[in-house]
């Protein structure tokens, strides 16, 4: 393992993480809800109850880049994957997060903050699967 010091951004990572934690705390404190993004999107697809707050949160996410641009240019967003990969990845993420009841936000941030053992297991599993997938793609297949 070698750390890529040029890419590592500890200050903005911690500050951005704190904002994510603040947002999760606000949703819990005022709404009594878990900020689980896959759960919100999935519930919007499945049920007509509890639409208001879920849709509002998702609209907030969509508006964040516009709000950012009021003050500064957007940070880079580089998407190397081609369309077939993006579609396969999207299908896996959509299906997997619903089957596993959560993603990086619901299990990774909120679940660990609740000290949930289910979320701890889920986080370890999806992190490990992500590590192995990138290893296979970048180091085994790419040679």
């Amino acid at each position: 393992m070698t750390i890529d010091w040029a890419a590592f951004t500890p200050a903005t990572a911690l500050a951005g993480g704190a904002l994510i934690g603040l947002a999760s705390a606000l949703l819990l404190i005022f709404n009594g809800r878990i900020a689980g993004i896959s759960g919100m999107v999935g519930s919007l697809l499945e049920s007509s109850s509890g639409v208001g707050w879920r849709l509002a949160f998702i609209i907030g996410l969509l508006l964040a880049p516009l709000a950012w641009q009021l003050f500064s240019a957007l940070p880079p967003i580089k998407i190397a994957a081609g369309y077939p990969t993006l579609i396969a990845a999207g299908l896996l993420v959509g299906f997997g997060t619903r089957l596993g009841s959560g993603c990086t936000s619901g299990h990774g941030v909120c679940g660990l903050s609740r000290l949930s053992s289910r979320s701890m297991i889920a986080t370890l599993v999806f992190m490990a699967a992500g590590f192995v997938t990138v290893y296979v793609l970048r180091h085994l297949l790419a040679g």
Binding site: V41, T85, G90, V93, R98, G100, S105, A129, T133
Partner: peptide
Amino acid sequence: RLVIGGLLFGIGWGLAGFCPGPAIVASGA
């Protein structure tokens, strides 16, 4: 369900580098 779901999600995450929140934000961008 928890374990298989986490595995499938992690594979998709590793394929493209997107999980749900960032994908929605980047769509908004």
